[in-house]
Simulated assay, not measured.
Amino acid sequence: MIERHRDTYDEGAPMHALVHDPDAPQGLRIAEVGEPRPGPAQALVRVSAVSLNFGEIAFQAGVPGAVVGFDAAGVVERSAADGSGPAEGTRVATFGWSQGWAELRAVDTEDIAVVPDSVDLGEASTLPVAGVTALQALRRLGSVIGRRVLVTGASGGVGRYAVQLAALAGAEVVASVGGPHRAEGLRELGAAEIVFGPEKLSAPVHGVLDNVGGAQLAQAFGHLEAGGILIAIGMAAKEHTLIDFETERSRGPLKRIEPFIVDTPFGPDLDYLLRLVESDRLAPQVGWRGSWEKAAEAAEALLGRRVRGKAVLDLSG
Rank of each mutant, 00 (worst) to 15 (best):
I257T: 11
A192G: 13
R160N: 03
R249V: 12
A232R: 10
K238M: 15
R160V: 02
G214L: 10
E188A: 15
L201F: 11
L209R: 14
A218V: 13
S250D: 13
S155H: 05
K238F: 14
S202T: 12
T247F: 08
N211T: 10
G190E: 01
A237D: 07
A220K: 10
V208Y: 01
V174K: 11
T241M: 07
V174N: 04
K200E: 15
A162L: 05
G185Y: 08
A171Q: 04
D244N: 15
V208M: 00
V212E: 01
G207T: 06
Q216W: 15
G157E: 00
A154S: 11
P259R: 11
V163E: 03
G153R: 06
I261A: 12
G228S: 02
Q219M: 14
H223Q: 14
G170R: 02
A220C: 09
A218S: 15
G157C: 04
P180I: 04
Q164V: 08
G207Q: 02
T247H: 09
G157W: 00
S250H: 07
H206M: 10
G222R: 14
E184K: 06
V205Y: 13
V262A: 07
H181T: 15
P265E: 06
G252W: 02
A237F: 05
S202H: 14
G179L: 01
R182F: 00
E188N: 01
R182T: 08
L201P: 14
A192K: 13
R160L: 01
A166Q: 10
L165S: 03
E246Y: 09
V177D: 00
G213P: 08
A218D: 13
V173M: 06
I233A: 03
Q219H: 13
G170Q: 03
G207L: 03
G222K: 12
E193G: 07
A171Y: 01
E258H: 10
E188S: 09
E239K: 11
K255I: 00
A154G: 10
D210E: 11
G234A: 11
G228W: 00
Y161G: 00
V174Y: 09
T152G: 08
I231N: 04
G170K: 05
H240G: 14
A175I: 04
T152F: 09
E258K: 05
A203N: 02
Q164C: 08
P265M: 08
N211A: 13
A154I: 07
L217G: 06
E246D: 14
Q219Y: 06
G159F: 05
A220N: 11
A183D: 11
A192V: 04
I261L: 13
L168Y: 03
E172H: 14
V163H: 05
F245T: 14
S155A: 15
A175R: 03
R160M: 09
G197K: 11
H240Q: 11
S155I: 07
L242H: 14
L201E: 10
V262R: 05
G179D: 08
V173A: 01
A203T: 04
G185N: 07
L224I: 04
S202E: 12
D210S: 14
G197I: 08
A232Y: 10
A162N: 12
P204H: 01
N211I: 04
V205C: 06
H240N: 07
E193S: 09
L224H: 00
P204F: 00
F245E: 04
